[in-house]
Design a binder for these strands. Sequence first.
DNA 1: CAGAATCCCTCTGGATACTG
DNA 2: CAGTATCCAGAGGGATTCTG
Lengths: 128, 128
Amino acid sequence: MDETTPGDPAGHARLGPQHRELLGQVLDKWSLEVLDRLCERPRRFNELRKTVPEITQKSLTTTLRRLERNGMVERVIVSTRPLGVEYRIAPLGKTLQDLIDALLEWSADNLPAVQQARQRFDAEFGAD
Amino acid sequence: MDETTPGDPAGHARLGPQHRELLGQVLDKWSLEVLDRLCERPRRFNELRKTVPEITQKSLTTTLRRLERNGMVERVIVSTRPLGVEYRIAPLGKTLQDLIDALLEWSADNLPAVQQARQRFDAEFGAD
DNA sequence: CAGAATCCCTCTGGATACTG
DNA sequence: CAGTATCCAGAGGGATTCTG
């Protein structure tokens, strides 16, 4: 059965462009950390900025909008004095929590090894 | 001890820019799929191209170089007829296998829900 | 076969200034 | 406080051409 490709050289688990786009929107530079922060507790805009110091206001806005559009976070208007907007993780976003956690942990665990690999590579090819 | 921030409003699990950079190089648009393919078995350059049809030669080269530099894949020259280069997953790359698997599965499982969320969002804000 | 090199263009993201 | 609006530089990525 399935004699289309002898030996199945191409594999079978291919993703479509849509999956790629989705992962791109969720795993991008800032989204991981923003989601991680919001998994802990709901947070306000400027609170988020402080927990991710190097993000600019514009990038944070963009990131939050995109995450909201994808159903990952919810934006709640809090009618306090001047204004108040609270971001909280949405159910769909929760499904990513463990994954994000594992990713952040992986990066912490393996950064040293990666740095060594880079040095080896640069020594061999970079300065050749 | 660690009375630096009363109530610890900023959380504690912050990542540095280096972690961010690392994740950016490993979770980028094409790396996930390339690593996934190489986890199955070693593959040749053009073989990889076929399993990820929409990637260009340039992007594949860039992706493979970066993954190699980060110690994720190994490049093996095979002295067959005209030329032969085989890419295989490196030990460091193996540590990502389960994570990548989970991510690809997550994207497949949740794409429909995300698409619905997008429609809701666009209906409410996009066409307002 | 497995790239390197080039051109070119889009898109991201930073800096800055302004508003409900 | 929580954004929106601009401007602008640089990286990413596509298409094409050339090579060991």
